[in-house]
């Protein structure tokens, strides 16, 4: 598989997949511990109306307005969920269910009503992206990685998702202590004078940024899977947050690489001519990793629960 075609055809999607997976898994760790794991699910549903609206306003499929629209929709959804939860005194899960299904329905309806048949904008694309199509035609071999002329031809998704990854990592590193304290013991964090409400909101917004950027590159299925599966699997491996983050990054990378390779080359090994969806396969692999961790991880049971044979 490391042939001449590897650099132009497989390297960019692999890198994009890995960056997206890690960018989602990092905030996913905290969301998981805060029992807000389904925020990723909600966000990835509501970006659809956001990008459709952005398309209707600008009339073109261009990345920045669509990411802005998606980001706006994500923030709107978070605000709506919070409002409905407080005003109607409804439990958070149900409030989330009401908001994201309604917004998704609105997005589908808008999409069907508007004339988008001429452009590549459909629900399937939004759901499972097209990781395979993010190729680098100028990359003629490993030497091209040092050639500025060729580097300019990289798919624009790659620098975007790489920047997002850097941003998310920086956020996690800079606010490590407040995040950790307010996640594990909100009361203690408040007595220390930490603005816990603000920290929670910032975390959700960072998660939304990661989700929108990853969504742009790889579709929403990977986003949901990567928010939850690698952190959940990592949670089975250790009791320490530092180690959990490390494991989750490892699991995310492994899912992205293994999933991409299996999707692209697996069918060929089995004798079929067509590759299968890389996004779907990455999600599947992350699920298999989670299943293994849930079955054999050293810290898989609740603290204090008897270990069953």
């Amino acid at each position: 598989m490391i042939g001449a075609e590897f650099v132009p055809l497989s390297l960019p999607p692999l890198l994009i997949g890995v960056c997206a997976a890690i960018a989602c898994a990092l905030p996913g760790n905290f969301l998981l511990l805060r029992r807000q794991a389904l925020i990723g699910d909600a966000i990835s549903h509501v970006v659809l109306p956001g990008i459709v609206l952005a398309f209707l306003v600008t009339g073109a499929v261009s990345a920045w307005p669509m990411m802005l629209g998606a980001g706006f929709a994500a923030v709107l959804a978070v605000v709506l969920i919070e409002t409905i939860r407080r005003v109607g005194r409804i439990e958070p899960g149900a409030a989330m269910g009401v908001v994201f299904t309604a917004m998704f329905a609105g997005g589908v309806l808008l999409l069907e009503q508007s004339d988008t048949s001429s452009v590549h904008l459909d629900v399937q694309h939004a759901l499972y992206g097209s990781l395979e199509s993010l190729i680098w035609l100028d990359g003629l071999g490993w030497a091209s990685l040092l050639d500025p002329q060729a580097l300019r031809g990289l798919p624009p998704e790659l620098p975007r998702i790489a920047l997002t990854l850097i941003f998310v990592s920086a956020f996690t590193a800079l606010f490590w202590r407040p995040l950790k304290i307010s996640t594990f013991d909100e009361g203690f964090a408040r007595t220390l004078g930490l603005p816990t409400g603000l920290i929670g909101l910032a975390l959700v917004i960072v998660a939304a940024i990661a989700a929108v950027a990853a969504f742009d590159a790889v579709g929403s299925i990977i986003v949901i899977a990567m928010f939850i599966c690698p952190p959940a699997a990592a949670r089975m491996m250790t009791n320490r947050l530092e180690a959990q983050i490390g494991w989750s990054v490892g699991f995310a990378t492994l899912s992205a690489v293994l999933g991409y390779v299996l999707a692209g080359y697996g069918p060929l090994w089995l004798g079929y001519a067509n590759a299968v969806s890389a996004a779907g396969m990455i999600a599947t692999v992350s699920g298999l990793l989670l299943a293994r961790a849930a079955g054999f991880g050293p810290c898989r049971t609740r603290a204090g629960a008897p270990v069953e044979g």
Binding site: Q36, A232, T301, A303
Partner: peptide, 23 residues
Amino acid sequence: RTRLSEDAAIGAVLSVFFGLGIV
């Protein structure tokens, strides 16, 4: 059987099964 809370379990199952379905 594991320490995961229900919301995490829901999210994991829905995304993985959906991904498999897409495959």
